[in-house]
Computed example of a mutant assay.
Amino acid sequence: MAMVVGVVAAVFAAGCAGGTVDGHATAALDGYAPSVNNQDPSRGIPGIVTVEIPPGLHVTGSQRVAYPAIPPMGGPHDARWAACDGVVYDKALRTENVVHSLEHGAVWIAYDPARVGAEEQATLRAKVENKPYMLMSPIPGMSDALSLQSWGHQLVPDNADDGRIDQFIVALRENPYTTPEPGATCSSPVFDRDNPPPYDPSPPGPDAFPMS
């Protein structure tokens, strides 16, 4: 049994030995690929914010969650996850659905469409489209122009060309050590990609589900 475990660990480490963006290995990203000996390489990214968040409870489709900030990086969430298999949404999504995607190992790129122009959006879109465990959506009026989230992790890049974006994706997309539900699918047949549950910009009321 020990030999089998050792072989599996070695295979995983070999598969993560080189960082990849858009399917191409880059030496500059090698140090951000998760491995048995470096399970959360994102901690080496300047400006990264990490918070210990236990796997979230489920809420109904009509419940709000009192997330401490928008966009959130974990917590209670809707039982349905937003499809996160390389989907670029043109509409703002209900946050409770997206947080469930983070629990499955997805990286979520959120941006304010009033402050991130078409050229920057195209740069970000190329990092997401048809990439497993990736999704992107606008949040009008969010505090920062651009923000990346995975479960318990958040990064606010300077712009779409910020090199830390690729570091974040390599370190945390489908990372089995930081994801509460490693191996969970990002395909979501019951989630309407064309007309998803909409984002509610109003503050959660007193009946909102608490974070703890």
Score class of each variant (00 low, 15 high):
A2W: 06
V4M: 13
G6C: 11
G6S: 13
V7S: 14
V8N: 09
A10M: 08
V11D: 07
A14P: 05
G15N: 14
G18M: 14
G18L: 15
G19C: 03
G23A: 08
H24R: 15
H24Y: 15
T26N: 15
A28R: 10
A28D: 10
L29D: 05
A33F: 00
Q39A: 13
I45W: 05
P46L: 09
G47V: 00
E52C: 06
H58C: 09
H58M: 12
Q63Y: 11
Q63D: 14
Q63N: 12
I70V: 14
G75W: 03
A79Q: 09
A79S: 11
W81V: 06
A82H: 09
A83N: 13
V87R: 12
Y89E: 08
D90W: 01
A92Q: 02
A92R: 04
A92N: 02
L93K: 03
N97M: 11
V99K: 04
H100M: 01
S101N: 01
H104R: 11
A106S: 04
A106R: 01
I109F: 07
I109G: 04
D112G: 12
G117H: 10
A118W: 06
A118Q: 15
A122C: 03
A122H: 03
T123W: 03
T123N: 10
L124H: 08
K127F: 04
N130M: 13
P132H: 12
M136T: 02
P138G: 06
P140T: 10
S143E: 14
S143Q: 14
A145V: 02
L146R: 02
L146I: 03
L146W: 00
S147G: 03
Q149D: 09
H153A: 03
L155I: 06
L155M: 09
P157D: 06
P157Y: 07
D158H: 15
D161Y: 11
D162A: 06
D162H: 05
D166F: 01
Q167R: 11
Q167W: 04
R173T: 01
N175I: 08
Y177L: 06
E181G: 08
P182S: 02
T185V: 12
T185M: 10
T185K: 09
V190D: 12
V190L: 10
F191Q: 11
Y199Q: 00
P201V: 05
S202R: 13
P203L: 07
P203D: 07
P206V: 09
P210S: 13
M211A: 01
